[in-house]
Design a protein around this nucleic acid. Structure first.
Lengths: 248, 248
DNA sequence: AAACTTTGACATCGATTGATGTCAATATCC
DNA sequence: GGATATTGACATCAATCGATGTCAAAGTTT
């Protein structure tokens, strides 16, 4: 970065202040770099999501985005930075969709009993997750598989996000089990297990070509929640006759 | 590979059959290459288990094993082949230990009721898994993290092994839920979820420096099994007062 | 001891990659 | 229309890695 003052450098005013070109083809500068950044992120989802992080190069990303390699470093410092940005973006999308669905479920069951509301909340959250990766399986590769194994750059981000999800699950379960730790229960471990069940079910669901069907996966994944809920509240199983009737 | 027949190649017997040197320093040839292979596998566990697969090179493996780079290719075709061998070796160890523990638990509870035996079997299997990665956390990095994300060479092996564990879990659960599919239950999904819970709990346990304690993790992981068992059999929860009493 | 094999340390080669630079063509502002 | 900024295609450079080769020292067999 060289200062380009118009009146400096002794006696030669040959170097003049560079005129800022605010807009090109009608779009301002900031919008253009943002558009290029979006193109790079799209190409990143395609490349990372199909061939995996470690099989992708900067050149491939740029070729996929139809951009020169210089514009890669305009928006991202390295491949890992691009992956982190993509990972954070996908998590933001999932989190937004999840919170919206939980909000709706909360309103719809506000007047009902606690057990029904909790059941509806779990079902809504699981549905969003499964829809999220069914609508674009590349997200599963990025979020559920690659993000975990990348070394200490993305690893800490991924670990942080995973911890956030675990805490979210944990707070959810705390409502499920009122006086849990009095009975020797560690809610953190239970929440970690439930989150792992969700992740693994979703991952294998993608791997097996979305078999079994969406509804079967959702119902059985939810059944694990119901089982824990019923187990610790000492109640009878929830209405499996109504919610677990097989359409197959 | 050039044939070194002592009487061939026209008229020049200059090339003679290479004498086989069966033993050097008292150890025969086969034992020496086997020993070098073991050294490489040890170095692989150290390198892969601490820095991850994609951050390791052939040179590092050879330096760790204090072997020349030529002996790497004597036993393994590529880094991926070495990782596959290590992965298969670790799985073999875990499988052997697990089957042995299940055998003991089976014999100890053969005369008791089914529910107690199933509970003992699950506890024994989980205990072996947790001990396996506590005794050497590098195994967790290799088996639970890296093996999943490697592309189509190890990926298929890892997928196959994962599927085997899922089927083992599934067969275990089939005993838990006698007439499950009649109620719209997909045992495969449940088994996948339980396996994912085990894996994730173990992974996070290593990451968090083995906190909470071994017994707490084991008890709560087992509680998920117990909850599902109790849920589907319609029984009251198992004796949580006896098995879930916190020593902390 | 001679002939041969095995071992170990190191060199070398080709290919790939990240990162930066070059340069002409195009678009914009004065 | 001229000066400048932006864009795009491509070249270049240093570093790394996998894979193979070289060569002398040590060990073994006859």
């Amino acid at each position: 970065m060289k200062k380009n003052n118009s009146v400096s450098d002794g006696d030669q005013p040959a170097i003049r202040a560079p005129r800022a070109v605010p807009s090109l083809k009608g779009v301002p500068m900031a919008a253009r770099v943002a558009q290029r950044r979006t193109l790079l992120l799209d190409a990143a989802l395609e490349a990372f999501g199909t061939r995996g992080y470690h099989a992708v190069t900067v050149r491939e990303i740029c070729a996929g985005a139809r951009l020169s390699e210089r514009y890669f470093y305009e928006s991202f410092k390295s491949l890992e930075a691009l992956f982190s940005a993509l990972y954070l973006q996908l998590n933001e999308q999932l989190k937004t969709a999840t919170l919206a669905a939980l909000m709706v479920a909360q309103l719809k069951t506000a007047s009902g009993p606690d057990r029904e509301r909790i059941d509806a909340l779990a079902r809504a959250g699981l549905r969003v997750l499964l829809e999220f990766i069914r609508d674009d399986p590349r997200r599963a590769r990025v979020m559920l598989i690659d993000a975990i194994s990348i070394s200490h750059g993305v690893g800490r981000i991924s670990g942080q996000i995973t911890r956030e999800y675990a805490e979210l699950t944990q707070r959810f379960i705390e409502q499920l089990f009122p006086n849990a730790d009095a009975r020797g229960i560690d809610i953190g471990v239970i929440a970690t297990g439930l989150l792992g069940a969700n992740i693994h079910i979703a991952t294998q669901w993608v791997r097996d070509g979305f078999r079994p069907s969406f509804e079967v996966v959702l119902r059985n994944n939810l059944a694990i929640y119901q089982a824990l809920s019923a187990f610790w509240s000492g109640l009878q199983p929830l209405d499996t006759a109504a919610s677990a009737k097989p359409p197959v």
